[in-house]
Design a protein around this nucleic acid. Sequence first.
RNA 1: GCGUCCUUAGCUCAGUGGUAGAGCGUCACAUUGACAUUGUGAAGGUCGCAGGUUCGAUCCCUGCAGGACGCACCA
Length: 957
Amino acid sequence: MANLEPRYDHNAIEGKMYELWEKSGYFNPDNLPVSRVKGQGSRRRRGSPRVVGVKSFTIIMPPPNANGSLHVGHAVFVTLQDILIRFWRMRGRKTLWLPGADHAGFETQVVYDKKLDKEGRNRYQIPREELWREIWNFTQESKKVMERQLRKLGASCDWSREKFTLDQNIVREAQSTFARMHEDGLIYRGERIVNWCPKHQTSLSDIENQFREQVDSFYYLKYGPFTIGTARPETKFGDKYVVMHPSDERYKKYKNGEKINLEWINGPITATVVKDKVVDMKFGTGVMTITPWHDAADFEIAERHGLQKEQIIDFNGRLLPIAGEFAGMKISEARPKIIEKLKAKDLLVKVDEEYLHNVRVCYKCGTPIEPQIRKQWFVRMTAPPHAQGQKSKVKSQKSGKALRDLGIEAVKSGKIKFFPKNAEKIYFHWLREIRDWNISRQIVWGIRIPAWFCLGCEETKINPKIKSRWFIVRHGETDYNKQNRFQGAIDIPLNETGIAQARESAKKLRNKKIDLIITSPLIRARQTAEIIAKECGAEIIVENDIRERSFGEWDGMEHDEVKKKYSAESFSRHLDPSFRVPGGASWEEITTRMWNAFQKHHAIHRHKNVVIVGHGGVARTLQNKIKGIPIIESKLAGNAEIWELELADPCPKCGGHFYEQDPDVFDTWFSSGQWPFLTLGFQEAKSSSMSKVKSQKLKVKSDFDMFYPTDVMETGHDILFFWVARMIMLGLYRTGKIPFKTVYLHGLVRDKDRQKMSKSKGNVIDPLGVAEIYGTDALRMALVVGNTPGSDIVISEEKIRGYRNFATKIWNIARFVLMNKPESGVMGHRSGNIVPTTEDRKNLKQLAKIKFEITKHIEKFEFHLASEKVYHYIWHTFADKIIEKYKPRLRHVDIQESFAPSGRQAKKNLADQAAAYQTLETILIGSLKMLHPFMPFITEEIYGKLHSDGLLMVENW
RNA sequence: GCGUCCUUAGCUCAGUGGUAGAGCGUCACAUUGACAUUGUGAAGGUCGCAGGUUCGAUCCCUGCAGGACGCACCA
């Protein structure tokens, strides 16, 4: 039995210890012994028999965002969850803690945008696939860092089951939830008002906004016979409805629908009176004009009354042509100028400069949200589909209940319990007021929405079977391109840039399993085709009918030359469908020629992946024919630019084969909201017996059966709505079962002055840094003692240091006990013959009582009480009282030497010494067990010194 | 506006229907001990204010004051 080193060196122990645990395989519930019977194997020495197996205990780890390193908030969840996991593992449950990482769509996009910004780049310049790849690599790196950090914090999670939100099967299943919900009418695509962040160029959900209180000017404007109030004069250009409460006596004489001619910012308009009871008669003048495109409330009024909606501000936050002379200006620039003009026109009645109101801002960058109307996907939260007058196709949901009601009932019925309990009230309050959830995000980083639109008629198909892909590629650059010359029928080869461009495109097409390349006969196209063919190994067909349009006399001329020689006017007509340059062809003729050729090949090669190498004219023609875009509005493809078309079964509405996928991605929370069942490999029960047999063979299937519903969802209260509520609703919707039985919410970590931690304040505690200095065990204790559910956690370096001292204390207790172990010979001849004294029995009884209390505390999620109790017992009872009291008994040997008692007395002393030691060792082991979930490293290390062949981690609690 | 919570020692926070606890800090003494420190002890609180219920309230109820947070379409 080795004695302990004089000091506990956490840095020397922790890494090795984690490795030992991980190697043992016990993080994986499948490796936990099914029954650990006394005496079985050398590992077990003490403890009672027990049977493990049927009952599981599961926590799905809230997946940290794979875009940075862990902060102290992560350390909180690791500590609390690891306490539960280690506790229940020791109590014999089949315990699974499933780790993961979140791609964190928008958040990561924001982080990456900042990185790009530093490098002088921005995401709008980078092709989608390239940007995706970059961010992918970035998140994979972050993920590795994060995994290392979780290990450092002692997380005893099952790495063999680790998941990433972008794992293929996770993505597939998340998308299939979307498909099911769409079928069930719980997801719809609508032209609705959304929260648009002009900086991030994406819409956001209602909870991804914050309200910022600010003082602005509030303007009273003369609007015909009325005075209206507004804080946003720049939106007022299109206001042609004036709204008032139907029972407002002041405006009794105006009838609903009445037209009034009046002078407005940019001239005379006709306004229509609308009566609606949302108007607050007490606010301002009780009359308002509305801007349905840029205000959610106004939008709803417009919907109710069937009013027109007009966009005033573009997606970059600049005024549109409707603003007349102000068009193109940013809001901040335009506002004072508009006011000036209103003043000049005598339309400004008065200004209240002290108007205090709440402005909705982007929660990431603080930019004011600009409500905009966009066609997006929404999750229907409230009414079941049939109540919306939509044909119900509900199959999977027996109940057909609204998601919101599923969420409310699960908690109301007590199936899901919250700690702290009052979180339930907050949860209900939010759900009662919930609105439909916009899940479309206009960013690259995320799970692509599995919706395709028919290019012919915009018909939507969810998850269609894409049978093949066609890639329309323009040739690379020629000298004529560079010189801005019409090239038409003139046969010019690629220049060096053109060759490089063609190679770039070829690289992108390399992995697309290209079967066939069809090219125009002109040399610039053929060269491009050959470069692609070399890379993709596909056969080339030359198709004469997709050669470029001839511009007749213009061919070979520079654009400016044409303008000079003919006229700017005729030059500008070169996109008119019927216009023809003498000796050339019109767009109409070209379109027919190319489309016929295209259709001919389509009929034959539809099921192949095809590259069509042509000219600007091909791209224009196909945009016109496939998407219905007039030639004049069609976009000229760049040199060697690729346009991807996806081919599926013919559209039931228009017969078209061509589809394009929605470019948007899901709100991250749509996929993380499915996390519990996605990570456990949920698969819908298939009706055919074939697939049943198949799925039974899959380990993932049994994971779902074994571990779902999970036991505890432990996370921060700040994501109650973002995450917890969505998991409950989506879990119930998809699996018919609650995703977890208990929700435990922890608070925000603050410094010792109750300040929020932030980098700018410089009060951030780096969990890994302090773990390095004081040990992970000390950090964990500091995070759990005094941490009541739901309320904020106060932590300071002093507190952590205090628990480092505690670790030292335990180490010394163990050192002391081991130091006093009687020599093996003495013990040996006495073993089995030790008679505990009354004092021993009293102390052991007390240990049992404390252990009972701690068990109850953990079961009731009272970690702050359990940890404090174990701390006090070990330090102030075991060390200060019991050990002090036992010292004389352990020193009988010394007494024997100095006073040479009789043989009988010596024997009696030795027996008492052995009993004293035995008691202390029992209390020590009991203490180590109780403390293990909180301070796993030091307890395991000491336990190892006592029992070199067993792991405390799987000892019987 | 709606909702949730908090107010207890100098600081940060636990806690209980029966005249209050911890950590840190302060003070005194002891200790080189198993202890890169620790032990023993002390000082320090009409448990936000005012009512009510109760034999008894810091705890339950009502009101008020202050604070924190969440939600929200007042133009």
